[in-house]
């Protein structure tokens, strides 16, 4: 798993509730895994919002506007990443260069998938996200933000630094880039013993 310690860069507001994983990565690209595995999905991020039927950029979609083309942080509204379990949605965001999504709540499967790919999903209250978006949209040209997972701080476009509270288990895994299978396997003897005992207790479940 890829490490995440800190991201600094352009923040892009897309404050719409219920942005689903179909919107993040449309289903017609899902089978590209047979060609490129978990990579190569960046060009298809938000494809139906980003490209017209002719394959050309839609000029009115925010990601296609010059200030946001190099976005690294995404500001969103409630229930970001709801819907399909496709990890491709995370691969598309990371593939594009986005390393942190800030939203009041996340689809839970998306949330877990994010941590497995070095993308930080950061839950913050909507009012706080709206305030950050307002700073960006004021036309001051200030769109840079920093999310520092190690220091647990967020630097707003106007330079204000606020303290973050991140789930310690998740934080630790991201900072170290832990290999989840490797960690579980370290306790394999105990797992194996549990499973043997369970088999005796619920034999019908091991047919």
């Amino acid at each position: 798993m890829e490490k995440f310690t800190k991201v600094s860069g352009t923040a892009m507001p897309l404050l719409r509730a219920n942005i689903d994983t179909d919107a993040i990565l449309p289903s017609r690209y899902l089978t590209r895994t047979t060609v490129t595995g978990k990579t190569g999905f960046g060009p298809y991020l938000f494809a139906d919002w980003r490209y017209g039927p002719d394959g050309k950029d839609k000029p009115d979609f925010i990601l296609n506007t010059p200030p946001y083309r190099d976005a690294k942080i995404l500001l969103a509204a409630d229930n970001f990443g709801c819907g399909s379990s496709r990890e491709h949605a995370v691969w598309a965001l990371v593939g594009y260069g986005i390393r942190c999504v800030i939203a009041p709540s996340f689809g839970e499967i998306f949330y877990n998938n994010s941590f497995n790919n070095g993308l930080l999903p950061l839950p913050l209250p909507l009012a706080q996200i709206e305030a950050l978006a307002a700073q960006i949209e004021k036309g001051t040209g200030k769109r840079q933000m920093t999310v520092d997972l190690d220091a647990q701080t967020l630097t707003a476009p106007d330079g204000t630094v606020t303290k973050l509270t991140v789930d310690p288990a998740r934080r630790d895994a991201l900072l170290k880039g832990l290999d989840s299978i490797g960690i579980t396997m370290q306790g394999w003897d105990a797992i194996s013993a549990w499973q043997a005992k369970d088999k005796a207790r619920r034999p019908w479940s091991y047919l």
Binding site: E87, I109, N112, N113, N116, N117, S180, I181, I191, Q195
Partner: peptide, 17 residues
Amino acid sequence: GLGLTEIEHVLATQTVT
């Protein structure tokens, strides 16, 4: 439902966090 990486974990360990 799980993402693909979580299923890798299930295949290797028959467990999930």
